[in-house]
Design a binder for these strands. Structure first.
Length: 313
DNA sequence: TAGGCCATCTGGTCCT
DNA sequence: AGGACCAGATGGCCTA
């Protein structure tokens, strides 16, 4: 079994020829050199592909064709990167975290997988619950996407960021449980929670939403709570007041407006403070499962409540 | 300084 | 023949 280093390259000592071939060299020398005898000898058919029999060595590309091939490759990679950029925007996430980093490609792909998985899970779990209240799966999925997008900041750009809130405030908006909401939201978060408050909130969410059980939805909810706590101490207030209050006080869609930053506590510029969100409308679909009040025995995080919408209290 | 991430160059293979 | 796709190699940049 061959050994590989961190870059997935063979860690075994290279034969003399290979060392010559793979030795470090300045980028400038990467330009095509005239074929020589060594190159001729070292050429072997690739193991990739179907044919294993020896083929004739392909003729090296001319300088012109090499240049055009490189240009095409750059263009191809640019398209791929644009697609990644689109995917970053499509997948709800904290676009700007504490370190001002953007999602890496691999992180983007993983988040997309989680997000799709969470939404698929909701769609497969939802039919029985929604059969009486009529909304279809697509509407529900759209509402989840919209809510998550709104909350997480995806799709917000300048003046046109109110993705989905209009749909959710309509009378036909599907009802989603708080668990649904948190599960969908949690899929876009990547918590690195380790402190006591995070653990506490995660456990709380797990117990509260899932009765202490396991499951991906449960962990997503716990992740959400943990992440929110990790990044903003208003999260406890958010958890306590928003979904619960929406149910308890039967808010009308137009009863409260504030900035998303005030509500969820996500740091600017993730959600612009100038970006208006109809809070009640956004959370009306999640109002059917009220959360009980949270008691953290005086935990200071719990009561740092700058929640701006007084109609809730 | 090591390791992660990325862009770019390059050659091999497949397809039209 | 030429383009698309792919993977290996390499070096630059950045962060822990």
């Amino acid at each position: 079994m061959a050994e590989f280093d961190a870059n997935n390259n063979s860690a075994l000592p290279l034969p003399e020829k290979a060392q010559e071939k793979y030795s470090l060299r300045p980028r400038a020398s990467l330009k095509r050199e005239e074929p020589d005898e060594d190159h001729e000898d070292s050429w072997k058919p690739s193991t990739r592909g179907r044919s294993t029999k020896r083929r004739q060595k392909p003729k090296p590309l001319s300088r012109y064709r090499r240049k055009t091939a490189n240009a095409r490759e750059r263009s191809r990679m640019r398209e791929i990167n644009e697609a990644f950029e689109a995917l970053r925007r499509a997948v709800p996430h904290l676009a700007v975290d504490a370190h001002n980093e953007k999602l890496t490609k691999i992180t983007t792909l993983r988040l997309a997988m989680k997000y799709i998985s969470a939404l698929s899970g909701l769609l497969t779990a939802a039919p029985s619950a929604q059969s009486s209240s009529s909304p279809n799966s697509a509407a529900e999925a759209a509402a989840i996407v919209a809510a998550t997008t709104t909350i997480c900041g995806g799709g917000i750009s300048g003046s046109g960021g109110l993705v989905g809130t209009a749909a959710m405030s309509s009378s036909s908006a599907p009802l989603l449980t708080t668990t649904d909401h948190l599960a969908a939201l949690g899929c876009c978060l990547s918590p690195s929670t380790s402190d006591d408050v995070d653990s506490l909130l995660s456990e709380y969410a797990s117990d509260l939403l899932c009765g202490g059980g396991g499951g991906s939805e449960c962990s997503s909810a716990a992740s959400t709570v943990g992440f929110l706590t990790d990044h903003h101490h208003h999260s406890a207030a958010f958890l306590r007041d928003l979904p619960g209050a929406a149910a308890t006080y039967s808010l009308s869609p137009s009863s409260c407006s504030t900035s998303a930053t005030d509500v969820v506590g996500f740091p600017s510029p993730l959600l612009s403070a100038d970006f208006p969100v109809d809070v009640a409308a956004a959370f009306m679909p999640f109002a059917d499962h009220p959360l009980p009040p949270i008691d953290f025995n005086g935990d200071p995080y719990m009561f740092e409540d700058n929640f701006a919408c007084t109609e809730f209290s």
